[in-house]
Design a protein around this nucleic acid. Structure first.
Lengths: 349, 349
DNA sequence: AAAGTTTATGCAACCGTGTGCAAGGCATTT
DNA sequence: AAATGCCTTGCACACGGTTGCATAAACTTT
């Protein structure tokens, strides 16, 4: 009597349904839809048309179970709200990765290394439960046992942006930025602009990338024959307030430096704001160079001279290599790139 | 002789392996690990211990195929790089959602509504292929046919932040911000501060949320008995440069307004920068109020007075409702919330 | 025309897990 | 001692696909 029930409850169509309607076996349907050369063109076309008419779609779970391919990649990246500058950079990088994966019809599960609530390893869970085919890792703090697990699992992966600390990455496929060169270039800009005493505002952590930036800073000074003054290196957390406060703390000895290398754009902007309030002109009195080339630096006046990390290129290359690994199953570290950053000359430095 | 082969190639352990080793059937293992009351405590414990020793993990695909549950939620959200302000807001919101889902052991696939390369609908694909159990939608531009598809599919979902245009959302579970009130509050702050001619810098689109903000602006003027001057509403794309340029374009008639309501923080900051260059004091000469409470406004001087949207609360509530729907299968729109934003009083307005 | 070859299809097993139902074992009841 | 009932477990099928192998049909070759 009531047809609604049947209409509404209609299960989604499977290859068996198609097989029944077309009067063939479900194997034939499977092969047809997968474009197997074993099936005649005429049958294939008939089946394909039918599948299309019925709005057929493969059941991803069933297909994965059978093929051992999920069509999903895990992207491990840090919480966004750490620091503002990073959050944007990270967002854009992940965005780029998503696009790269999309091109190959791959979905992406975004995740943090550890579960926020149970301290369980999200990475292990995704791998062991076979939810993903591969991994893109962008995180400064992957625990050693997770690295170990990733390695043993043999899952294809590419590491981006953050060099693993306390774990050997020489066998991995990776893509980093040469922050030594970045720090060097930034400092060089200041030196070339006539600065002789350069304040370095750096992140207060032993994250490799910041150490490298500082190393580049020191190298540039040395090459220019400028004695390195440890007093001029100040550490804090990479945020606007650190830059602002660092300058305010020194308002009575502003003459002690004539340039500032801030290891993050946001810190540079904080410093500039403080200088402005103190009536110091940037870049006329003090030059300032940032790092990261977040959109921020383009907006504010004076426009920020900064170091650009080529995130689009990073994202593209990483996806390409990962997809290659998925297909070839060849995990050898054929991509170990350390990309040189780019100096963006604007007004502040 | 050579055991390595066997050790290395060891397939992942399945419940059948456990069954064989424990000398029981795989059903017993399945039931034990799922804590079925049908199995005796002693057997359960034995099996669980064994599973643990063997590092067993369920195969997600197999489990999904059988249970029709993937444990994965799709999050549809816009490209990050649209406008800077939005990108950050979006990132934080998505972050909050991830955390909410994590609490219930749900993974999340992030996606855009349309594939960037093939113009195919990512939403339909995720649903039809049964890759996800539910959907969190944060996007101003979901195509009508996608909405239609979502509705027919019967999949649980919650809409956040963007009211669907050109599609009836009265039957959906949603969580929006009351931007009329937001616009009203922002404008009221200016009026209370003594402003009588308020420039409104709005997004040049017919996105509902911006229309609402403008509506609130008009309402506030009306309530204050101020005649509304259409000349004072200027549209542009919500970015720093729009705010900057809008002021620069009016540098000869700065006396024609004494307050600015910018419908996005970034626009407000652009305007403030322009005013600063023109020697106009904020808030002494002209008051400025922004919208969104992106971290930006906290940093720059004068600190931005702005309208805060409670994203943490949005994220939490949305996840709770979605999880509830997943469990109860009751899709009725019991959550239709329009949350009032919060005025953040700082220095600029 | 018979044998051989190619092409197209179906059968059945498999991927790893969940679950209704039957059945065996044991304790309790009559 | 037989009947009853509960607790525990296994069997077998289902979930929706893929794929090796057998086989049937069509086409060549001699």
């Amino acid at each position: 009597m009531c047809m609604d029930q049947k209409e509404t409850d209609k299960q989604t169509v499977t290859i068996k349904d198609i097989a029944r309607i077309a009067g063939v076996s479900h194997s034939t349907v499977s092969r047809s839809l997968n474009d197997s050369p074993l099936i005649s063109e005429s049958t294939k076309n008939r089946i394909k048309k039918l599948a299309n008419d019925l709005n057929f779609a493969f059941n991803a779970s069933a297909q994965s179970l059978s093929t051992r391919r999920t069509g999903t990649i895990g992207i491990i990246y840090p919480e966004l709200y750490d620091t503002f500058g990073n959050s944007l950079y990270m967002g854009l990088l992940v965005q780029g990765l998503r696009h790269g994966l999309e091109k190959a019809s791959l979905d992406s599960i975004g995740s943090f290394p550890r579960n926020h609530y149970t301290a369980e390893s999200n990475i292990r869970k995704l791998i062991s439960r076979k939810k993903i085919d591969g991994l893109l890792v962008i995180h400064p703090e992957i625990p050693v046992d997770d690295w170990e697990y990733i390695r043993k699992s043999g899952i294809p992966f590419v590491v981006l942006h953050f060099k693993p600390r306390s774990f050997d990455y020489s066998w991995m496929n990776y893509l980093f930025t040469d922050h030594v060169t970045g720090g060097y270039m930034a400092t060089k800009v200041l030196i070339d602009g006539g600065c002789r005493s350069i304040l370095c505002l750096r992140e207060d952590s032993d994250e490799i990338q910041f150490n490298e930036r500082t190393e580049g800073y020191k190298n540039a000074l040395k090459d220019a024959g400028i004695a390195h003054d440890p007093q001029l290196i100040v550490a804090g957390d990479c945020a606007f307030d650190f830059g602002f406060q660092a300058i305010m703390d020194r308002k009575n000895k502003l003459a002690s430096f004539d340039g500032i290398f801030a290891e993050a754009d946001l810190v540079a902007l904080g410093a500039i704001e403080a200088l402005r309030e103190l009536g110091v002109k940037v870049p006329d009195d003090i030059r300032v160079v940032g790092y990261d080339d977040t959109e921020l630096g383009r907006y504010f006046r004076p426009k920020l001279t900064t170091v650009h990390q080529p995130r689009e290129e990073h994202a593209r290359l990483a996806c390409e290599r990962l997809i290659e690994m998925l297909e070839s199953r060849d995990m050898r570290p054929t991509m170990q790139k350390v990309i040189k950053p780019l100096m963006i000359y604007r007004e502040s430095g």
